Amino acid sequence: MNGLAEFLARGRAAHRELMGEQLRLYEQGPDVFDRESGETVPGPQTVLYTGPGRVKPVAQASGTEEQAGEREVNLRDYEVAVPWSTELPPGVRVAPGARVEVLASADTRMVGLVLWVTGVQYSSTATAWRLSAEDRS
Rank of each mutant, 00 (worst) to 15 (best):
E65I: 14
Q45I: 09
E65C: 00
P89G: 07
G119E: 09
T127H: 10
A81W: 02
Q28G: 04
V58T: 11
L115R: 00
S62Q: 15
P83F: 04
P44L: 13
P30L: 06
V100M: 05
G38F: 04
A68C: 01
E66A: 11
L88S: 07
W116A: 10
L113H: 04
R24T: 12
V55Q: 02
V80T: 03
T40N: 05
E65N: 11
P96R: 02
E27T: 12
P57R: 14
Y122I: 13
G29F: 01
S37G: 09
K56I: 12
L18R: 15
E66S: 09
D77T: 13
V41A: 11
V117K: 03
Q28C: 05
G43R: 05
Q28W: 05
L88G: 03
D107K: 12
Y26E: 01
E70S: 14
E21Y: 06
Q60S: 14
D77W: 06
W129G: 10
T46I: 08
Q22L: 13
T50P: 00
L25F: 03
M110L: 15
R24K: 13
P30W: 08
G69I: 03
V32I: 15
W116D: 11
V117N: 03
P90G: 02
D77I: 08
Y26G: 05
D107L: 12
D31L: 07
Q60M: 07
R93H: 10
Q28H: 08
A128G: 04
W116P: 00
Y78G: 03
A106R: 12
P52V: 12
P30Y: 08
D31K: 06
R16I: 00
L25M: 07
S37V: 12
V41R: 15
T86N: 05
G51K: 02
T86S: 08
L23A: 04
T86W: 04
A128W: 07
L88E: 01
E17D: 10
S85L: 08
E70L: 15
Y26K: 01
A95I: 09
S105I: 01
D107C: 09
E21Q: 06
V117F: 02
E27F: 08
S85R: 10
E65F: 12
A128D: 04
L23H: 05
R54F: 12
S124M: 08
S85C: 08
L75R: 11
R109S: 14
L25Q: 04
P30R: 15
V100R: 02
T118F: 06
E72H: 06
V55D: 05
K56M: 11
L115I: 02
A68Y: 11
S123L: 09
V92G: 07
D31R: 08
R16M: 06
W116T: 13
P52N: 11
E39G: 00
V102H: 02
G51D: 09
A61D: 15
Q60A: 14
G43S: 06
E21L: 01
M110C: 10
E72G: 09
R99W: 10
G119S: 13
A126W: 03
P89Q: 07
E27C: 06
V73P: 04
V100P: 00
P44I: 10
S124A: 13
V41Q: 14
R109K: 13
G29V: 02
